[in-house]
Each structure stands twice: as C-alpha cells, then as structure tokens.
Amino acid sequence: MGHEWLSLWSFLYGPLSIFLVGLYGLLTQKNLIKMAISINIMDYGVNLFIISLGYVPSAEAPIYTDAVKTYLPVFADPLPQALVLTAIVISVAVTAFILALTIKIHSQYGTTDLTKLGEMEL
C-alpha cells in the first residue's frame, strides 16, 4: 500500500501539481517575467510526467555498454525520453524568444506589468 501510494505521488500527482503551480502562476501573476517563469514550471511538470510514463521497475538506462551488453534483463522505455529531449529544446527556444520580447516591451514602455500596459494608450 505504502509503496503504491509513493509511486503514484511521485509519478502522477507530483508532476501534476508542479504543472498546476505553473498554471496558477500564469493566471495570477501580472509581471511578464514571472509569467515566463510560470510557463517554464508548467514545462517541467509535463516533462516529468512524460518521463515517468517510461519508468520500468529496476531497469537500466537504455544504453548498451560493457556492463549492459544486451537489452535483457530490461531497459527503460527510450521513447518518452526522446520526446522530452525535443520538448526541452523547444522550451529553451520559446523562453529565449519570450524574454527578448519582454526586454523590448520594457525598453519601449518602461514597465513589464500587464495592468499598467493595458491602461496605457498604445
């Protein structure tokens, strides 16, 4: 029972709550940089969840070496790891672009606060 509970919390509820923390930040924060951080936290939640789908109990990393010459006893599933590698690179690219936009907005209007930007005559 205890073991099952622990694995559910670390593989399902943990990543899900990280995702929801990011969602909360995205909905409540008004600072553009904090919103960028929230998007990144959501990324991490989703990545952790996808990685945990490929977890196999007492498995090796899916890399053949001198110590692990064949795929038996068992390898972890490499496909979710490959998908997460793609997702991490995309999130880095998107974050760089978001931050560049934020810097431009700040140099143009002098603020990164969404409510102040909304009140401005643009």
Binding site: E4, S10, L53, V56, D77
Partner: peptide, 9 residues
C-alpha cells in the same frame, strides 16, 4: 495509466 510498479515492458 501504467505507472511505477504497474509498468512492465
């Protein structure tokens, strides 16, 4: 979902 120990290849 097949999570944790429920997950076998």
């Amino acid at each position: 979902l097949k999570l944790g120990d429920r997950n076998t290849l």
